[in-house]
Write a protein that binds this DNA or RNA. Structure first.
Length: 838
RNA sequence: GGCCGAGUGGCGGAAUUGGCAGACGCGCCGGACUCAAAAUCCGGUGUCCGCAAGGACGUGUCGGUUCGAGUCCGACCUCGGCUACCA
C-alpha cells in the first residue's frame, strides 16, 4: 500500500473523540457536488498534460448530437464508464486525454429552422449549452479546453481540407447515378439511411432517380479496411458486421457470347466450378444489354417487367421474396461447352453488384433453383457429395462443396480444385479471369441540405449575362475545381428560408449571390451540395489531440503521441457506418502522413441500452423516459453515476429501477457517515487488513476489465464491514475514498478533504495491495460424499490430503457415511474441495 | 432465412481457469428506536418436507462427458439485437 498517501500532517486531524463529539453531518450531494465542480474548474484539474515522459491514455466517448431534448439516461452510461477509467488512470500515473465535443450538424436543427425560421446555428448553440450543463452536473472529468464543435468554422475548415485531399487523390468524384431521393426531406439519402424502403429519419418514402452526386471511393480501401480488423481489440460481433458489410468474395468473371449478336454478357460468379450446370442467364432489369437481346415477340413483356421493376420501391422489392422474371427471347453461349442457354431478366439480380448479370446454376444456388422451378427451366447437377450424380432429381439446391459431375474433363475434381482449373482455362481462352468483388459500395457523400459542411468545389459557368440575375447559363459540372486551401473555411450563406425546394441541386442553389461569383471576368458556380453528418465525426478524435492548431488539422507529433485512441466507448448502432467511415478517413490521413497509427481506435466497447422501468424501450410515447436532471436533483450525480455502473455489465441491456438507485444512495450515505468516524489512532486488525487488500485488488482488476458492477459490490462489502467497527481506522477510509473516487468523484474528494488531505484526490497515487496479505491463513473447505456437500472443515491453507481426510472424519455426518460404506476414492483439490467417493 | 448475444430467487445481477449456486443491491418479513410514522440501525429471506437436527429438489428443455457441470460437448425451445435475394 502506498504510505505517502497517508500523510495526515496538515489540516484537521480527525480523532475519535473529535468525531464523536461533533454532530454528525448528513451527506448532502446538493452542496458538495457544485463545490467540487467549482474546484475542478478553478484548479484546472483535468487539463491534459503536455509532457511526454509518462505513459499516455486516450479515453474517448462517442460525442453526442446535441438534440433539443437534452441528455438521455443512456448517455451517462458510457460517459461514466470512460470517466471512471480516466480518473483511475490519472491516479495510476498516466497522462490522460479525455475530451468531449459536439456532432452538431444534422437534420433536426434544420427541420426546426424550417418550422420556426430560427437559424440552425442558434438552435445548435442552445442545445450545446444544455448538454454541457448536464455533463458538468454529472462531474465528468473532461478537458473542456479541448471541446470541439463540428459546426464551428474553425472545425469545418479542416473537414473541408480533408475533402480536398480526397479530391486530389481521386478519392472524391462525381457520378450521375440513381440515388435515393426523398422528396419529403428534399434530399438524397445513403443506402444506410433507408430502413425498409423508407427514410430512417421520419419514415418518408424514397424513390430512385439519377442525380449528380459526390462519391467517395471507399472501395479503394476495402482490403485494408478488412485486413486491419485483425489488429483491433473490438467486440467480435462488430468486427463480423464490418467484414460482412465489406463483403469481399473471390470468384471469376466469365464471358458468355450472345447468340446472334456481337455482344458479350459478362458475369461474376464465386462458383466457376459449376459452369457446366449453368442452364440459364439472368440480367438485372437495368442492364443495357436487355435492349439488345430482347426479341420482338418478347419485347412487350420485357418492357412491362422493366417498367414495373423501375417503379417498384425498395420496400416492395424486399416485401416479396418470390422470384419473378421474364424471358428475353435471347440466348447466350456457355464458354465451357458451347451450350446455348436462355437469357431472362429478373429483379432478384441487382444492377449494383458484380456485373448486374449472372449465370444461373439452379442445382447449386437456392435463388436460381427457385427461379428455375417457377420458370420450368432444366436443373443440371454438377457437384455431388458422393462423386456420382444423384439418382433422383434434386429437391433443393445443393450449395455445399463436393466433387464435380457432368462437367466433362473436370469430372471427379473437388470443388476447390475445379474452381482453380476452370478459371485458369477460361483465362487462357480469353473468356474469363479471377476477380474479387465487394458488397461495399462507394460512399455517396453529398446531401441537398443546408445545415452541413459546404463541399469546397466550384465549376466554370458559361453565361452571357449575370447568372445571379437568372440569365441563361450552363454550369460545367465536368470541370470541378478545388477551392484554394487558404480560402477555407467555405462558409454557409445566410438564408431566410430553409425549406427544401423541388430543385435537387439543394437548398443552397437558391442562394444565388453565394453560389455565383466572378473571377478574372469569368463566372463560376459553387457546389451546392453539403456533406453528410458523418463527415464531422470521421475525424473528431484527431482534432481533440490538437484542437486549436490554426496551421494544420493536427500536428503529426501530437498525433504520434496520442493516437490511437486507447479506449473508445459508444453505442453498437455505430458498429458499421461511423466506425467504417472514420477508419477510411484515418487511412487516407495515414497515407497523407498526418497520422502514424494504422487504426484510429484500438479498443472499442459498446455500452448496452438502458430500458424503462418496465423493461420496455424508453420513449416519449410510453412515458417512461427518465430525465438525468430529475435523478440528480433527487439523489445526486454520484448516486446516478454509481447506480448506472451498478445496474449490471456495461455491455448488457438492462432496465432502469428507481428503487435500486435509492439503494445506491444509501450506500453513499453510509460511506459519508462512516468517514466521519475515521480515527487516526485506530489500526486495522488482521481481518480488516486482509479485506482492505482484497478490495484494492478486486476494484483495481475490475476497473481494468470494465467490470464496474462487481467493483462497486466489493466496495459495498468493505463499507459494511467498516460500519461494524467501534473504531474506524482512518487509513481504511482513505483507501475506500481512493477506490470510490473514480465512481463517485464528488464524494471521494469530500471524504479525502474530511480526512485532512489536500485535493484533488486523483493526484494521490492509487492504493496498492500486497497479494500475500490477501490470502487467508485458514480456509474453509466443503466436504462432499459422492458429490453432495455433507459438511465443512477449517484447515490451514496449505493442508495436505491426509490432514483434510482426518478432519473430515471428525464430522458426524461424514463419519456416518464412511462407517456404512468403504471409501473408494478421494478427490482433494487443495483449498477448494474434498470429495469422498464411497 | 442468416449472423451475434442471452436465458440463474419476487426483481437487477454475482460465481473471470469445471470445485460451497444465488456475492452485492432492490423488494419482502420480523425486531430496535418512536406516542406514532418516516428515516436509520439489527436480523431473516431459492423452493419443498420437518418442531428441530436435518433432508430432498434447484441455473430454459432433453441427453452426454466428469469424482464433480450455471460453466465443457450434442440436439432443441424461448427472448433480444443486427442483417436480409450481393450471384
Amino acid at each position: 500500500m502506498h504510505h505517502a498517501a497517508r500523510d495526515l500532517s496538515h489540516g484537521s486531524r480527525p480523532s475519535r473523540r473529535h468525531a464523536m463529539a461533533a454532530a454528525m453531518t448528513r451527506y448532502d450531494p446538493a452542496t458538495i457536488e457544485p463545490k467540487w465542480q467549482g474546484f475542478w474548474d478553478k484548479d484546472d484539474t483535468f487539463r491534459t498534460p503536455e509532457g511526454i515522459d509518462r505513459p499516455k491514455m486516450y479515453i474517448l466517448d462517442m460525442f453526442p448530437y446535441p438534440s433539443g431534448s437534452g441528455l438521455h439516461v443512456g448517455h451517462p452510461e458510457g460517459y461514466t464508464a470512460t470517466d471512471i477509467v480516466a480518473r483511475y488512470r490519472r491516479a495510476t500515473g498516466y497522462d490522460v486525454l479525455h475530451p468531449m465535443g459536439w456532432d452538431a450538424f444534422g437534420l433536426p436543427a434544420e427541420q426546426h429552422a424550417i418550422l420556426t425560421g430560427t437559424h440552425p446555428r442558434e438552435t445548435t448553440a442552445k442545445n450545446i449549452e444544455t448538454f454541457k450543463r448536464q455533463l458538468k452536473m454529472l462531474g465528468f472529468s473532461y478537458d473542456w479546453a479541448r471541446e470541439v464543435d463540428t459546426t464551428s468554422p474553425d472545425y469545418v475548415k479542416w473537414t473541408q481540407w480533408i475533402f480536398l485531399k480526397l479530391f486530389e487523390r481521386g478519392l472524391a468524384y462525381q457520378s450521375e447515378i440513381p440515388v435515393n431521393w426523398c422528396p419529403a426531406l428534399g434530399t438524397v439519402l445513403a443506402n444506410e439511411e433507408i430502413v425498409n424502403g423508407v427514410s430512417e429519419r421520419g419514415g418518408h418514402p424514397v424513390e430512385r432517380i439519377p442525380l449528380r452526386q459526390w462519391v467517395l471511393k471507399i472501395t479503394a480501401y476495402a482490403d485494408r479496411l478488412l485486413e486491419d480488423l485483425d489488429h483491433v481489440d473490438w467486440p467480435n460481433s462488430t468486427r463480423i458486421m464490418q467484414q460482412e458489410w465489406i463483403g469481399r468474395s473471390e470468384g471469376a468473371e466469365v464471358e458468355f457470347d450472345v447468340a446472334g449478336h456481337d455482344a458479350v454478357i459478362e458475369v461474376f460468379t464465386t462458383r466457376p466450378d459449376t459452369l457446366f450446370g449453368a442452364t440459364f442467364m439472368v440480367l438485372a432489369p437495368e442492364h443495357p444489354l436487355v435492349e439488345v437481346i430482347t426479341t420482338p415477340e418478347h419485347r412487350a413483356e420485357v418492357n412491362a417487367y422493366v417498367q414495373q421493376a423501375k417503379n417498384k420501391s425498395e420496400r416492395d422489392r424486399q416485401a416479396s421474396k418470390e422470384k419473378t422474371g421474364v424471358f428475353t427471347g435471347g440466348h447466350a453461349v456457355n464458354p465451357v461447352n458451347g451450350a446455348e442457354v436462355p437469357v431472362y431478366i429478373a429483379d432478384y439480380v441487382l444492377w449494383g453488384y458484380g456485373t448486374g448479370a449472372i449465370m444461373a446454376v439452379p442445382a447449386h444456388d437456392e435463388r436460381d433453383f427457385e427461379f428455375a422451378k417457377a420458370q420450368r427451366i432444366p436443373i443440371v447437377e454438377v457437384v455431388s457429395k458422393t462423386g456420382k450424380p444423384s439418382d433422383s432429381p434434386l429437391a433443393e439446391a445443393m450449395v455445399e462443396d463436393g466433387t464435380a459431375v457432368n462437367s466433362g474433363k473436370y469430372d471427379g475434381l473437388p470443388t476447390a480444385e475445379i474452381k482453380k482449373r476452370i478459371t485458369e482455362d477460361l483465362e487462357a481462352a480469353g473468356k474469363g479471369r479471377a476477380r474479387v468483388e465487394y458488397k461495399l459500395r462507394d460512399w455517396i457523400f453529398s446531401r441537398q441540405r443546408y445545415w452541413g459542411e459546404p463541399i469546397p468545389i466550384y465549376f466554370p459557368v458559361e453565361c452571357e449575362g449575370d447568372p445571379r440575375a437568372g440569365d441563361a447559363h450552363v454550369i460545367r459540372y465536368d470541370q470541378p475545381m478545388a477551392v484554394a486551401a487558404k480560402e477555407l473555411p467555405l462558409r454557409l450563406p445566410e438564408l431566410d428560408d430553409y425549406k427544401p425546394g423541388e430543385d435537387p441541386a439543394g437548398v443552397l442553389a437558391r442562394a444565388r449571390d453565394w453560389r455565383f461569383f466572378q473571377r478574372d471576368g469569368r463566372w463560376f458556380a459553387r457546389e451546392t451540395n453539403t456533406m453528410p453528418q458523418w463527415a464531422g465525426s470521421c475525424w473528431y478524435y484527431l482534432r481533440f489531440v490538437d484542437p486549436h492548431n490554426a496551421e494544420t488539422l493536427c500536428a503529426p507529433e501530437l498525433a504520434q503521441r496520442w493516437l490511437p485512441v486507447d479506449l473508445y466507448v459508444g453505442g453498437a448502432e455505430h458498429a458499421v457506418l461511423h466506425l467504417l467511415y472514420a477508419r477510411f478517413w484515418h487511412k487516407v490521413l495515414y497515407d497523407e502522413g498526418v497520422v502514424s497509427a494504422k487504426e484510429p481506435f484500438k479498443k472499442l466497447v459498446h455500452q448496452g441500452m438502458i430500458l424503462g422501468e418496465g423493461g420496455q424501450k424508453m420513449s416519449k410515447s410510453r412515458g417512461n423516459v427518465v430525465n438525468p436532471d430529475d435523478i440528480v436533483a433527487e439523489f445526486g450525480a454520484d448516486s446516478m453515476r454509481v447506480y448506472e455502473m451498478f445496474m449490471g455489465p456495461l455491455e448488457a441491456t438492462k432496465p432502469w429501477s428507481t428503487s435500486s438507485i435509492a439503494g445506491v444512495r444509501r450506500f453513499l450515505d453510509r460511506v459519508y457517515a462512516v468517514a466521519q468516524r475515521a480515527d487516526a489512532e485506530a489500526r486495522p486488525d488482521a481481518a480488516m487488513t486482509r479485506l482492505l487488500h482484497r478490495t484494492i485488488r478486486k476494484v483495481t482488476d475490475d476497473i481494468e476489465g470494465l467490470r464496474f458492477n462487481t467493483a462497486i459490490s466489493a466496495m459495498m462489502v468493505l463499507s459494511n464491514e467498516l460500519m461494524k467497527l467501534d473504531q474506524v481506522p482512518a487509513e481504511a477510509i482513505e483507501v475506500l475514498a481512493q477506490l470510490l473516487h473514480p465512481f463517485a468523484p464528488h464524494l471521494g474528494e469530500e471524504v479525502w478533504e474530511m480526512l485532512g488531505h489536500r485535493p484533488s484526490i486523483q493526484e494521490h497515487p492509487w492504493p496498492s495491495y500486497d497479494p500475500a496479505l490477501c490470502e487467508e491463513d485458514e480456509v474453509e473447505v466443503p466436504v462432499q460424499v459422492n458429490g453432495k456437500v455433507r459438511g465443512r472443515i477449517t484447515l490451514p491453507k496449505d493442508a495436505s490430503q491426509d490432514q483434510a481426510l482426518a478432519a473430515a472424519r471428525e464430522l458426524p455426518n461424514v463419519a456416518a457415511q464412511l462407517d456404512e460404506k468403504p471409501l473408494r476414492k478421494t478427490i482433494w483439490v487443495p483449498g477448494k474441495i474434498l470429495n469422498l467417493i464411497v
